[in-house]
């Protein structure tokens, strides 16, 4: 037996541990010795057996009715414990459920916000694209109008379409045509104004004429265009011009040609 073990067994820590009167640190020390040294383990085992035998020597027969009383109470304790555990479990489940629901709702709100922001961003992007296209178109028109090769032609209505006022811009170098419709007499719903180009003696359909307010509208360019004509046609336009319903015409000859001074 080592000195260390002898010293430990010579003290009273093991007896105090048996009595359950050691501090937590002392208990740790005792448990260390019991674990590590078989001699200490043996003595501790003997002390326990001695105490057990000593205590048993004072055993007193319990009253017969006590057994039922004691077991009934432990049984009741168990029954009481189970509902408490159930209640605790239910409470936790409910709290968890509520928290989960709140998180779900918050998540939904955030998703909606994100969708809204995403839509807004998309709209803004579309606006940017649209504005860029518009700017490009305006710049293009501006370039055309400023181009010295652009010719300006004023269309005025005849007696049928007296209020018709439009200006056509034709650039033969760039092969572009634009029209600006400032005023257009009203027509029944089933009729429209249609623009034609006279090419090699035939009227080629160009476009339906609409009020363009302050904007220029590009119209198809035709090579060898001798004149621009406007007729009243059934809704949707015609393939063949109704000459009898012509309301305006402009010939691209020198008499009608106006040089754009811009």
């Amino acid at each position: 037996m080592s000195d260390r073990v002898s010293q430990f067994l010579g003290g009273d820590l093991l007896e105090s541990y048996l009595m359950g009167t050691t501090s937590p640190i002392e208990s740790q020390e005792v448990e260390y010795y019991i674990d590590k040294y078989p001699e200490v383990q043996k003595v501790y085992k003997e002390l326990q057996e001695n105490l057990e035998n000593y205590a048993i020597s004072y055993a007193v027969q319990t009253p017969k009715e006590l057994r039922t009383k004691v077991l009934k109470q432990t049984e009741t304790t168990r029954r009481r414990v189970v509902p408490l555990l159930s209640i605790a479990a239910c409470t936790i489940a409910v709290v968890f459920g509520v928290v989960a629901f709140l998180i779900y709702k918050q998540n939904q709100v955030l998703l909606e916000d994100r969708q809204f922001t995403s839509n807004l961003l998309e709209n803004l992007n579309n606006d940017i694209v649209s504005n860029r296209e518009m700017l490009q178109s305006v710049e293009e028109q501006f370039m055309i109008l400023n181009n010295t090769a652009t010719q300006k032609y004023i269309l005025t209505g005849n007696s049928v379409g007296r209020k018709l006022e439009a200006v056509a811009y034709v650039n033969q170098l760039e092969k572009k045509s634009y029209v600006h419709v400032a005023s257009l007499p009203e027509l029944p719903d089933e009729q429209v104004y249609q623009m034609w180009a006279q090419v090699d003696g035939k009227l080629v359909p160009l476009d339906i004429l609409k009020l363009t307010k302050d904007n220029l509208v590009e119209i198809p360019y035709e090579e060898r265009m001798a004149s621009l004509n406007v007729t009243i046609e059934p809704k949707g336009g015609s393939k063949e011009a109704t000459i009898s319903k012509e309301v305006a015409t402009i010939n691209f000859n020198k008499e009608n040609e106006l040089q754009d001074q811009q």
Partner: peptide, 11 residues
């Protein structure tokens, strides 16, 4: 209870 009650009751 059957094995220890008497001893514990004595204590």
């Amino acid at each position: 209870y059957d094995h220890y009650a008497d001893a514990l009751y004595g204590i």
